[in-house]
Design a binder for these strands. Structure first.
Lengths: 226, 226
DNA sequence: GGGATAACGAACCAGTTCGTACATTACTCG
DNA sequence: CGAGTAATGTACGAACTGGTTCGTTATCCC
């Protein structure tokens, strides 16, 4: 337990560590209270250091939130890179990808909250981010390959591209986490309680498979994507 | 144009109108800036009346936000009651319901934003609401009937209940509106641009139909809902 | 070892924010 | 018609909030 490599001895002037500590505190506070609701003093208090340092490293509240968002996306990206898409059947691989994405969201509610918050603010921080390129989901490339393979073998007939597929999967993964509370209040059902969570995950997997292989109603004939 | 029935002549002591005006202003401000970001003075300024009246009618910022949320849900409910579920085929009816719900969300982004905001605050206002009963979606009853009819005729085989089905549809309808901005920033695609919006709506309809009639992969045998 | 510089702390400030005290006006109803 | 009450406007204040000023301490590198 504990990081074996970097010793955690308290060095007074450890820039990297201070920065990381601030980011962690800020992330927790922003996720808890929203952007405007988050208090710089509170973030500082959650840290070994002072408010002065936040401005030293991040310049402003907006700068700090932007950094928090970027870091959250990067962490997700790192974890998603562990995806092994080397299954034989691309359709079954897609199901697994969807289910892993589902688990992933459930395991990182703070990330989902931060994204919600950023959307409430119309994505203005992300739009100004200098590091947008780093933040793309590696899952996209994986999906792309699966779609290609599935089409070559003829098993996948659905008319979607990778981004569309990603939107589809994300919709289903984000909702139970993002809207958990209002849903619970209105319908008296906790979508993340084990029973319902498992059912939703299965549902998502089935949906993905059924949709891709498109065995049933196919109202619109395949159109070549312009 | 203009309400034909109730005259809009300015009567100084018109409680109902003042209340309604405050609610409308508050709704706009909360949706725009989030809960903590919304300013009571700004809300007052958007009104013909003064801040004093907000506290007179709603007691506090929390009280006001709660009222705004309740009103937003009620409005949605009113509109959803117009749903005619009298189609012959319950499966096709469900597709139409899903597509109407989709359009509905697209047409009311402020509602979606308010719900997001309430979820960021863990649904605490809704939880304390006195009027939860009024806020249930009438769509639920409609879905229930469709499911029953579809099962009787044997066309519907999927193992979901009405609430589950509602969660499924909602997921897909909420996402493009709620996460529009981050998605656009990351993937350079506006999910609500006509081309993509239409495609998503079709996708949702197909998904619903395919899932309900469950022609493909059916991994888990039907289990009787306990 | 010493100077340059990066990292840091405490106290503080000006503008803001929710909420209220106090006084006033219009409406209702006996 | 007059008294009681519902509705309203003005002005203000106490607490808070993002951000800063000024000075200090540790570290790096020649």
């Amino acid at each position: 337990m504990g990081t074996a490599v970097s010793r955690d001895r308290h060095r007074p002037h450890d820039a990297g560590r201070t920065r990381r500590e601030i980011l962690a505190a800020a992330r927790a506070e922003f996720a808890e209270a929203g952007y405007a609701g988050a208090r710089m003093d509170e973030i500082a208090a959650r840290t070994r250091t002072s408010k002065r340092m936040i401005y030293y490293y991040f310049g402003s509240k907006e700068g700090l939130f932007t950094a928090v968002l970027e870091e959250a996306y990067r962490e997700i990206r790192r974890q998603e890179q562990l995806l092994d898409a080397d299954e034989q059947d691309p359709v079954e691989a897609m199901r697994r990808l969807a289910e892993l994405t589902f688990d992933h969201h459930e395991a990182h509610p703070d990330f989902v909250r931060l994204v919600s918050i950023e959307n409430v603010h119309r994505g203005r921080h992300l739009a100004r981010s200098q590091h947008l390129a780093d933040l793309q989901t590696p899952a996209l490339a994986v999906i792309e390959r699966m779609l290609r393979r599935g089409r070559e073998s003829g098993r996948i007939t659905a008319d979607v591209d990778a981004v569309g597929m990603h939107a589809f999967i994300s919709s289903f993964c984000v909702f139970p986490v993002a809207n958990r509370h209002t849903f619970a209040a209105l319908f008296d059902r906790d979508l993340l309680a084990p029973v319902h969570r498992d059912r939703l995950r299965t549902m998502l997997g089935d949906l993905v498979v059924t949709y891709l292989t498109g065995t049933a109603a196919q109202p619109s004939p395949l159109v070549s994507p312009e």
